[in-house]
Design a protein around this nucleic acid. Sequence first.
RNA 1: GCUCCCGUAGCUCAGCAGGAUAGAGCAUCGGUCUUCUAAACCGAGGGUCGCACGUUCGAGCCGUGCCGGGAGCACCA
Length: 667
Amino acid sequence: MAFSDFQQKLTDALREFASAELGAELAQIAAEVPPKTELGDLAFPVAFELAKELKQKTGEKQNPRAIAERIAPVLESFEFVDRVSIAGPGYINVYYDRAAFVASRSERPSLAEHGSAGDKICVEHTSVNPNKAAHIGHVRNSVLGDTFVRILRAAGHDVEVQNYIDNTGVQVADVVVGFIHLEGMDLEAIKSLDAKLAGEGRSFDYFCWDLYTRVGQEYQQNEALKENRAETLHMIEAGDNPTAELADYVATRNVECILDTMERLSIRYDLLPRESEILHLHFWEKAFGLMKERETIRLETEGKAAGCWVMPFESHEGSDEHETDKILVRSNGTVTYTGKDIAYQMWKLGLLGLDFHYRHFSTYANGQDVWITSAKVTANDLSVPEFGHAEKVYNVIDTRQSYPQEVVKKGVALIFPERGEDASVHLNYEMVALSPTAAEELGFELSEEDRSKSFVEMSGRKGLGVKADDLIDRLEKDAFAEVEKRHPDITDEEKNGIAHQIAVGALRYFLLKFTKNTVVIFDFKEALSFEGETGVYCQYTAVRANSIFRKLDENAVAEAYETISGSRSAVSELFAGEDGDGIWSLIALAARLDEAISQSVNAAEPATLARYAFNLSKAFNLFYHHHRIIDESDAVKRSVLVAAADHAKTALTSALATLGIQVPERM
RNA sequence: GCUCCCGUAGCUCAGCAGGAUAGAGCAUCGGUCUUCUAAACCGAGGGUCGCACGUUCGAGCCGUGCCGGGAGCACCA
């Protein structure tokens, strides 16, 4: 049984007691982890609240300590509770039975079993415009999304991962304009360029990155090119023409490149829904019809938005410059992104009444398949899984898009009030910006104004950004050098493998340690660090733990648990002794993994789990420096130390896996 | 103008649903490797939690006002 189960039982008992004996109905019972191990494993400040409530009821002043005294025996009656103490003005501190707990080997009944079947959750993340290489800002989105997916799965949910491909948007059009009008290329020329780049070890998405920047610069002085953009965008949206075909090739190649980048970080997808299918399979028309039917939108006949279909939006004030309502259909009849997203969200929730066709896109090295949407029915080499039909949807999107996301959420809720606004969650996070120093290290000339700012925003259009693959390459190179220092004897292949795991650990943790609404100001020194609060520190800790078990006999762990079970009183004595609190605090922290995961889920905040992994690592290192495990001569103590290390290792490895961080055999 | 977010140690950030003496990393200074990996550990210094009022037994957290910073309010996404 885990600590979370203990807490559940105790709060239930408390609630019942308060109701039956004191006549107080407690809706929520606060519980907290005491600041120090000596103060117990769980604390209830509930006596303060009860004192207040009883005073209101009876008019008599109540002493919280006296109430706490009455509650203590109730909690003490549980077999997993060793004792209860009243501390300070009336805290009820619960101490678990340490010897009994440590004896139960922490086999994780993987939280998966807690989940109820059928509550499918859909998480959309990454959704990088397929017109250039991914940069560090995109990676924050992907790492947050992927980690949240892992956390949801660890909490027992069935999750489907979607990466939306905006293959018919302005950004793709811009690169297409570059290929056609700046490079003078047709589809065949692009294909041979692609082959040539591959031969030179250069990548297509990097070429597009530079080309996109050039197009952006050219627009500023070339009006004709801007006209080409509008025309190109129109051709791409319409489909079935050479420009659209060219755009499809460019977008698809960029998707492949971006998926390769993400695969380096162990980030994978189930489905790639494309905007072209939203258009061609008439998802919008269907949603549009439903919205008109339910009168959630109206056709504007006068004012600035005359001729547009808009959704009323009262919570935002209008002004001279800004409209109150959100335009979904432009006066020329085309649909805005927000409009298309409403249709897409409805599909995700299984509310649209239409479906995509699907085509197998590729298979990952681990055997997982990725599917992509298709406008046409295709012959399937594998049976197509069911996509969409989710109970709940999380959209991992930059906080700057909060306003349109609010419109989307409201739009869906207005059409399907029975599902409400809760069905769709905008998992928003702040951007990644560059420190002025980092921008200069990338070779960008900064204006006086930029230099005085605390950060510089990245810009795909200006080509200002840290490309994901560049950063991973650099991390792998640095990690390789560190591995070589420590293990000169192993093969390069092994070194590369370890360096890769370290690089991924460093990068993922770096992006997860900040809470979502903190702007990450990217700094090379910090991102490349392998010391202190980093993923590498956590990995190193787990590696240390593993090397203990590697040096122990094969069945030493099983024997340790047997010894503990057979000598309960000696174990209790040990825990009551001078090393007791120290050893127990590690075991207790390891037992809180479930709580860290459910907190992460409830707050939709992966940083919570990242911090937990770091704190557990610190606790293990403290323990490690305090005790010699293998050399311990006292058999009982040695067994407890082995069991404590085992509890910690299991929890840490599991926490790291949930963060998408692997533990190398050595490093 | 309106909406949202932020302000905690020199720097970068945590701080759970309001609870016990406000924490971590980095940086600085001083200690630890014949040992289960020193990518580590221990110690020291460093705080009017932006300011002011209020609610509460109790406020970094809640409310109001102010100051300072950021983002958004497109027929872009």
